[in-house]
Structure formats: structure tokens, C-alpha cells
Nucleic acid binder design. Structure first.
Lengths: 212, 212
DNA sequence: AAGCTCCTCTCTCTAAAGAGTGATGCGGGT
DNA sequence: ACCCGCATCACTCTTTAGAGAGAGGAGCTT
């Protein structure tokens, strides 16, 4: 313990668009002897810039942020440094979000309603390059396994379906025929195991495939 | 300024299901000379219990919480003390949520991405029984004005529509005929100014009429 | 080159949704 | 007593959605 205090502290960057959340995390982290916050970011672009600037041990990242989506930030940061240690911390528990982040190389994923202790131990785990995922989140990630994933085109169509567009309207917007739009919608219904388009939207939202 | 320091501090209760957010708010509030956090709550029931126990000057309340919805908490607390000063602090900016809370008597409403200063001045305003609403939120509240509100039955139907149920299915679940279900759906479409049920769900979600 | 996925388009046919209109009965309020 | 909003049901008619079954071509992998 005393020996550990002499080692360099874990450097942390916090990226979250809510000042309140950053304050809360910063207070928690800086209270610990073995870690410190070296920078904060309020949006995706800033998160990447600060990461480049400080190269911290751990990047704590919210998923839904202005300017650049959390998943995109994960991708970009790992591109800059494949050994980056990223801990996702968000309120979104859709299996798609979780799957995307973890499969792209994030080291940890936990929810904002996690107790303080769990958050701190997650940061420590990730700082040592050990993956950390709470049991409930891990269960969701496993749920996602085996489920068919949608193609990009299907996601495009799904987005429009979620906005309440008709097949004809979707066809017009994507410059395809109504028949093709129907084909995509049909594929979506099959993959999401939904009977109607409205149910498909509900399922997709629950899974985090779309964000209304 | 020096005189103000001698007056009693503003007592605050924080109700939010995220420990991190509570920590952040608590740190911010306790750093101020003129206010202090006297209790915290992690769900709706607890918020009511703590309010009764401490009767604070201000209750800072998150809307989406376990056990009891924020709107229900507002209602109950104002029932216990019609002069209660409640500040809503949430991520949800649907006009229905805003309208519900403010029309029921909440003194303020702001979003979690608000800067620190705005949050603190909102607490001060509310503590003096002055209403505080950020301009963007106020604009939303005005949007809601004039728009027709749905009846309880229509909300029941809307909920099922949002889950992807068919008219026939909805009729079965509510023990009414399919024709009646159609009538309700039609009324919903008219009131929400939507062409299809899927669009109605999108609009309803945006407005905060339903929470998927 | 063969195999693969994905996007595209074209049929038919049935079921469901939505527009339009009207009507009954219940309950609350003036 | 009267009015009015609400929930309930009924009827017709048009449009849209969705099931089913192919099929061609672009692009990528092995």
C-alpha cells in the first residue's frame, strides 16, 4: 500500500457533456490517492484532442455526446493509439452500444447508476489493462451474440422508418424504388424478429440500434 | 455579501438515481457559502421520505427515477406542502414533461448539461420562491401551449402502439373492439398531427408523452 | 473462377391501417 | 334540463404494409 503510493498516479481524462457529471467524477477520482484527473472534455472532438494532448492512462467516456458520437471517439482514439485504455460510462444499456464499444476495443463498460466503489475499481482495472464489465452489462453483451446484425443500408432505412416515414417516402429519400424499400424493411423485420415496423422501431430502440 | 453569510444557509435535498450526479451536485452546492446539502435520495420514494424528514428549502429532482416517476414525486410533495420549492433537473427536454412539472407547481426546470453557474443561480432563485426556467426550456413549454392533450385512454392506446401492437392486439388487451381501438388511434394521429402510427410514436417520444 | 453478401428491382396476394362519417350512452358541469 | 367531452361501437372505402418467391449485378474473398 505504502509502496503503491510512491508509484505514478493513474492519469484520467473525463469526457462527458454534463458538467455536473464531470464534477462528480472528478471529485471522486481526485479524492483517491492513486489517481488524478488531468483533463476534461465536453464533447467528442474535445475528447480526442485532450487524449492526444495528455495520453492518459484511462479515458472515461460518455457515449452520447455532441459533435462526435462515443463509438466514433472509441474508434478514432484506438486508431491513434491501439493500446489506449478506454472505459465507457453511460446511461445507455442497449446491447448494440455495448457490443460495438467492446468489440472495437474499449476495455470497460459501466452504467452511470453504478455505485462509487464500482466506478473506482473499474478505472483501476482498466488502467492495468484488465477488462472490466459489470455483470449486467456483460449479460447484455452476450445477448447480442448470435443475433444477426443489420447492414448499413438497412440501418439507413430503419432510421427513416423510426421517423415515421412510409415506404414510398423512404424510397424517394434514398433514391430507390418502393419495392426495394419494402425488401429492406422486410429484412429488418426478420432480423429484429418483429411483426410490424412499429415493433421493429421499439426493438431497435431497446437494443440501441437507433437513438431517437 | 458579508451580511448574507450570516443568514441561514439554503438547505437542499438532491434526488437522482446516479451517485455520480449526486456527488457532482453536492460538491458544487457545498462549496457555496450560502447553501448546503442536507440529504440525498436515489429514488422517488426516498425523495419523498427525505423531503418530509428535512423539509428543505429546495428539492432538486431528477425526472426519471426508479420506483416513482419524477412527476409523481412533484405531485406528492406539493400535496404534503403546497409551498414546496422544487427544481427539476433532468436530461429530458420533451415539452410534455416540462409542461407537466411546471403546471403542477415545480418552481424551476433545467437540463443537466447546464453550466455550473446556471445550476447554482437556479437553486438560489427557487429558494427565494422565484421561478427559474432556462430560455430553451421556456421555449419548449410555450410550444406545448395550444397543442391538444391526449385523454388517458388515448395514452393507454398510444403506449401499446409504441410497443408495436396491432389494432387487433390493442383491442384485445384493453377489452374493446378493434373499431374502438381504431377510433382512438385516429384521434391520436389527429392530435399529434401524424400521418402514420409510427410517426405518431416518433412525435410522442419527442414530446415526452411516452418513454420507451 | 467460384462463392459470398449486399443492393437492387419485379411480381402476386392477403392483411392491416387509415380516411370519412355517424351514432349511442355515460358522466360532469352550468 | 341541457350541453359537452369521452368512450364505445359500426359501416364503407382507399391506401399501405407485409408475406412469399425470385432474380440480376456489383464487389469482395478465397
Amino acid at each position: 500500500m505504502a509502496a503503491e503510493l510512491k508509484t505514478r498516479r493513474i492519469s484520467v481524462i473525463l469526457a462527458d457533456d454534463h458538467p455536473v457529471v464531470r464534477d462528480g467524477l472528478a471529485a471522486m477520482v481526485n479524492q483517491q490517492a492513486d489517481m488524478e484527473v488531468v483533463a476534461e472534455a465536453g464533447d467528442g472532438d474535445e475528447a480526442i484532442a485532450r487524449y492526444e494532448q495528455y495520453r492518459p492512462d484511462v479515458l472515461v467516456l460518455d457515449l452520447r455526446m455532441p459533435k462526435r458520437d462515443g463509438v466514433a471517439v472509441v474508434q478514432r482514439v484506438l486508431e491513434l493509439n491501439p493500446k489506449a485504455r478506454i472505459l465507457i460510462m453511460t446511461t445507455y444499456d442497449g446491447d448494440e452500444d455495448i457490443f460495438q464499444c467492446l468489440s472495437q476495443g474499449a476495455k470497460g463498460y459501466l452504467l452511470k447508476d453504478a455505485p462509487r466503489q464500482e466506478i473506482l475499481s473499474a478505472i483501476r482495472a482498466v488502467s492495468e489493462d484488465r477488462p472490466y464489465t459489470s455483470t449486467t452489462v456483460a449479460a447484455k453483451a452476450l445477448q447480442r451474440m448470435g443475433k444477426p446484425s443489420l447492414t448499413q443500408r438497412e440501418l439507413d432505412v430503419l432510421q427513416l422508418v423510426a421517423e415515421g416515414r412510409s415506404n414510398k417516402d423512404i424510397a424517394r429519400r434514398l433514391s430507390i424504388t418502393e419495392g426495394t424499400a419494402k425488401t429492406h424493411v422486410k429484412a429488418i423485420l426478420t432480423k429484429l424478429d418483429a411483426i410490424s415496423r412499429t415493433e421493429a422501431v421499439a426493438v431497435a430502440h431497446k437494443r440501441g440500434l437507433i437513438h431517437l
